[in-house]
Design a protein around this nucleic acid. Structure first.
Length: 567
RNA sequence: CGGGGCGUAGCGCAGCUUGGUAGCGCGUUUGGUUCGGGACCAAAAGGCCGGAGGUUCGAAUCCUCUCGCCCCGACCA
């Protein structure tokens, strides 16, 4: 490709809207342009990278027996009413009516349509397992797009779906997909970790997210430095320290004037916050619920939602707490009549400090069973750095990550509601057991840049570089220009992907663009080296250039390209 | 949806406090000189100042409303 004809210009100044490096670079390099918040147009260079990512995805998906299909973005509402998600998904699902007044949606994902497709084609266990995938548009009307391509509203996703006769078969395939996913990210040049994750409203039981660990990530991860435990904070667990061997002391009421927070009480009584009992109030289904958790811990609302089976919980406002007969700041589960959930952290301890439900007073030596009761114990803790690993007890650490892929064991959520059944070998009708597997392409591209760049620009891994080689000439001597033209033809005929900077520009301009655009190999033709029948070659990730004789340039490039593709 | 910020030429910004009819740098076009890390000289094109109302003799500037965009949070298959 000749750069004089390439669509998409580089810009020197950083657009004001960009904060993170990959966002700045995709704009400066002219890879994409924004059409609206979270909606981007891809220019030729970026689209070539997208196609290379697609090649990797197709290769790996085909390799584990998935078949590529294509499903529509615009879908009738009935499918989504059938699965129930028409009613449970919020305004990120775009709804509209077609000219006939029929309710339609823009697909946020394709479980419904793939289930509809499969239920009409598959009827026997002999036809299973089956795995299908597509690379298709999704539109999610996110409340807030951010970070360039990191979080957008319209995006391409590779989404795969598998159908099995039972859980065991799904489990085995899930493992195959896991391995394929690690290969995909490695081939694209991105190191990722897999973490346990929440299923959100997609349903199912087990799921994992593939995380690119980076400070710009939106997700908080809980990682064990000793064993392989890793989880999204949304679902992370911890090992609770036990101290159950202490004898129960007798309950005492103590004056604690102006001690409304855990910190104030602990300080006033010379205790630490983990000896205190924290009471939190939420409203679920119109009712105030108290959650009792150790004073130094935070509550995980996602866990609470699941236990209460209510996605619409919210913290109670002070008025609601007062109406429930609770003294704000001095509340505790002792002698309380409202619904109480107990966290594991307090089930394992004894002789707590807790509110006396009377302004200005606390109890000491409060004990579960003797002084209060509640439902549970449940795991309600929002695990953070410093907690103990649930597997090995080591101190957990926190990191941030961008979710570049995820896999779910859906089970029979969609096959049951949408009646995707098959006849087993006994002639019994059963719902298919499903899994689903997604990777966002634009986000992956963005993360690759985030990982591979320097101050001057992008440093593409060979596997997803728009072109392997950037070629330019320096100087205006006719023989230099002719040699550059000739070399471009020669390399192109040899099947090497070359971006040829044939523009009539000064060298500094070309070199800066070469660094910004980030092709893995830069070739420079100049009078200086041409005199010795040599071409200058510089790898983008190295600081030094080398001279290569004209005769060996093709074999050298072939070697570098294949080496780059292997690593 | 809460909090903060921003909409002025393709991009980055100044002008707004204290109203007087729009400017700078880069980029673009033309001509010339240059040519190994974003050159120089000369000339030129390009903006109903996001939109709508209002105040005023007069609004980019003041007031009201609205739309869009970014950041933090909430939310997030």
């Amino acid at each position: 490709m000749k750069m004089s004809r390439l669509f998409g210009k580089t810009i020197r100044e950083v657009p004001a809207e960009a904060e993170i490096d990959s966002h700045k670079l995709i704009l400066r390099a002219g890879l994409v342009r924004k059409l609206a918040s979270g909606i981007y147009q891809y220019n030729p260079l970026a689209w070539r990278t997208m196609k290379k990512i697609q090649e990797i995805l197709r290769n790996e998906m085909d390799g584990i027996g998935m078949q590529e299909i294509n499903m529509p973005v615009v879908q009738p509402a009935e499918l989504w009413q059938e699965s129930g998600r028409w009613y449970t998904v919020g305004s990120e699902l775009t709804r509209f009516k077609d000219r006939g007044g029929r309710d339609m949606i823009l697909a946020i994902t394709h479980e419904e349509s793939v289930t509809e497709l499969v239920r009409n084609e598959i009827s026997s266990y002999r036809q299973l397992p089956l795995a299908l995938y597509q690379i298709q548009m999704k539109f999610r009307d996110e409340p807030r797009a951010r970070g360039g391509l990191i979080r957008v509203r319209e995006f391409y996703m590779k989404d795969g779906y598998s159908f099995h006769i039972n859980e065991e078969d799904l489990d085995a395939y899930y493992e195959e997909v896991t391995q394929a996913y690690f290969r995909i990210f490695k081939r694209a040049g991105l190191d990722v970790i897999s973490v346990r994750s929440d299923n959100g409203n997609i349903g199912g039981k087990v799921s994992h997210e593939y995380m690119y660990v980076t400070p710009i990530g939106e997700d908080r991860l809980i990682l064990c430095p000793q064993c392989d435990y890793s989880a999204n904070q949304e679902v992370a667990e911890s090992k609770k320290t036990m101290k159950t061997d202490q004898p129960m002391l007798s309950l005492e009421k103590i004056a604690t004037p102006n001690c409304k927070t855990i910190e104030q009480v602990a300080k006033y009584l010379g205790a630490s916050s983990n000896q205190c009992l924290k009471a939190l109030f939420y409203v679920s289904k119109g009712q105030v619920v108290m959650i009792a958790i150790r004073g130094d811990l935070e509550l995980n609302e996602i866990k609470l939602k699941k236990i209460l089976d209510d996605p619409n919980i919210r913290m109670a406002v002070e008025e609601e707490v007062l109406q429930a007969g609770i003294v704000a700041g001095y509340a505790s589960p002792v002698h309380q009549s409202i619904r109480i959930l107990i966290d594991e952290s307090i089930a394992n301890g004894s002789n707590w400090i807790a509110g006396a439900n009377e302004a200005g007073f606390h109890y000491t030596n409060v004990n579960l069973g003797r002084d209060f009761q509640g439902e549970g114990p449940y795991d309600l803790e929002l695990v953070s750095a410093g907690a103990a690993c649930p597997n090995c007890g080591s101190t957990l650490r926190e990191a941030r990550g961008v979710e570049v892929g995820n896999i779910f064991k859906l089970g029979t959520k969609y096959s049951s509601s949408m009646k995707a059944t098959f006849l087993d070998e006994n002639g019994d009708s059963k719902p298919m057991v499903m899994g689903c597997y997604g990777i966002g392409l634009g986000r992956l591209l963005s993360c690759v840049i985030e990982e591979h760049h320097d101050d001057a620009g992008i440093i593409w891994p060979m596997s997803v570089a728009p072109y392997h080689v950037y070629l330019c000439s320096v100087g205006v001597q006719p023989e230099v220009l002719e040699e550059a033209d000739r070399l471009y033809q020669e390399l192109t005929s040899a099947g090497i992907e070359v971006l040829y900077d044939d523009r009539d520009l000064r060298p500094g301009f070309k070199f800066n663009d070469a660094d910004l655009l980030g092709m893995p190999i830069r070739l420079v033709v100049s009078a200086r080296h041409l005199a010795n029948q040599e071409i200058e070659l510089k790898e983008r990730h190295k600081t030094e250039a080398v001279k290569v004789s004209k005769a060996e340039i093709i074999s050298t490039l072939r070697e570098l390209v294949s080496e780059g593709l292997r690593s």
